[in-house]
Simulated scan of single mutants.
Amino acid sequence: MTNHFYRFIFSFLVVLSSIAGCKKPEKATPVAITFIAPEASSIFQVPDTILVKFNIESKSPIHYVRVSIDNEDLIPVSPQLFIYPVDSMRHFEIPVPVGALSAFDSMNCYVHLVVENDQKTTHEFMEIKLSNKPFAYKGFSVVTEEDGNKSRIYFYDEYMTETAQLSVIGKITHAVTARESDLLILTTAIPEILSAYSYSDLKLQWSRDPQLPYPEFTFIRDHSPLLYFGNGAGQVISTYSSTGLE
């Protein structure tokens, strides 16, 4: 009888463990993403800065949000920008710079949002179209010496005639023109500096150093009257193109 009793207890425990093992896993908490801007099928002439606005509803904490403009193969054509929200953040707005298209004059793209919370990673897409702005021949070209210690900028008029030269210290990594303020704005490496020169007399108008702890300029985009630039932490900072002040 004792053996039968122990067998019964053992069978009962096996049944309990089987029931516990069949417990359904908790469902992942859904993330609701609502695009506010841009509107679907919007057309942008690039280079340009696209202002992306959206709302996120999540019952669990959001670890990060990643924003980029991707082509149809989901390859980014813009920097991948990150937002690390606090718990109360539900409304988001971030400028995303996009350069000129190299392979095509126009293409269908997506605003690509990636949201990660405690339980899952959610992707959301908004279809837009990019097209290159008409080329303007008046401008400049940049040549950096082989050792990277010095660069030279050549200026041209609308007839592609060289009108002036400007020598700067360091390797030029990014350069844009601020049309409203008639400035050439550029970043250099070694030293890492963001600076603006007047088109009319080629004199330095303002300059600023990168922010610590990631002293690097990853891109610059002019969206007059504002200038947007990125740093090594993935942040986007805006200043006035004419003064360099935030």
Rank of each mutant, 00 (worst) to 15 (best):
P61Y: 10
D87Y: 08
A40C: 09
I62A: 04
Q80S: 12
A40F: 06
R66H: 15
Q80I: 15
S42E: 06
E57G: 13
N55P: 02
P76E: 06
P79L: 05
D87M: 14
V67I: 12
V46H: 01
F44R: 00
E72N: 13
P47F: 02
L51E: 14
V46M: 00
I50E: 03
Y84W: 15
S60G: 12
D73L: 14
L51H: 12
V52P: 01
E39G: 12
P76N: 12
V52L: 11
N71H: 08
Q45C: 06
D70M: 12
Y64K: 10
E39T: 10
P85C: 10
I56M: 00
F44E: 00
V52Q: 07
M89P: 13
Q80P: 10
P61Q: 10
A40G: 05
F44Y: 05
V86C: 12
K53C: 09
S88D: 07
H63N: 15
I56Y: 04
E39K: 11
V77L: 05
T49D: 04
L74N: 15
L51T: 11
L81A: 05
I69S: 02
K53Y: 08
I56Q: 02
I69N: 05
S88T: 09
I50A: 03
S42V: 05
F44M: 05
V46N: 00
Q45H: 01
M89W: 13
V52I: 07
F54G: 03
I75E: 14
P76A: 06
P76Q: 11
V65E: 01
P61N: 11
S41D: 14
S42F: 03
V65R: 02
Y84A: 13
I43F: 07
F54C: 05
F44H: 00
P47K: 01
A40W: 07
V86P: 10
K59Y: 08
D48H: 01
F54E: 03
V46L: 04
V77I: 08
I43M: 12
F82T: 15
I83N: 03
V52C: 04
P47T: 00
P85V: 05
E39Q: 11
V46A: 01
Q45R: 07
V65Y: 00
Q80V: 13
Q80Y: 13
K53V: 08
S60Y: 08
M89S: 12
I43C: 06
I50Q: 00
Y84E: 14
I69D: 02
E57H: 11
D87K: 13
I43K: 12
H63I: 15
A40L: 09
L51V: 15
V65A: 04
V77S: 03
V65M: 03
P76R: 06
V65H: 00
S78A: 08
V67P: 01
S58P: 03
I43R: 09
P85F: 07
N71D: 14
Q80R: 13
S68G: 10
I62D: 03
D87F: 10
F54Y: 06
H63E: 09
S68K: 09
P47E: 04
P76C: 10
F44S: 02
R66W: 08
Y84P: 13
F44G: 02
I75Y: 13
I83E: 04
S60T: 09
L51G: 09
S68W: 01
F54M: 04
P76K: 08
Y64M: 11
T49C: 03
T49R: 02
S42H: 09
S68N: 07
P79R: 00
S88I: 07
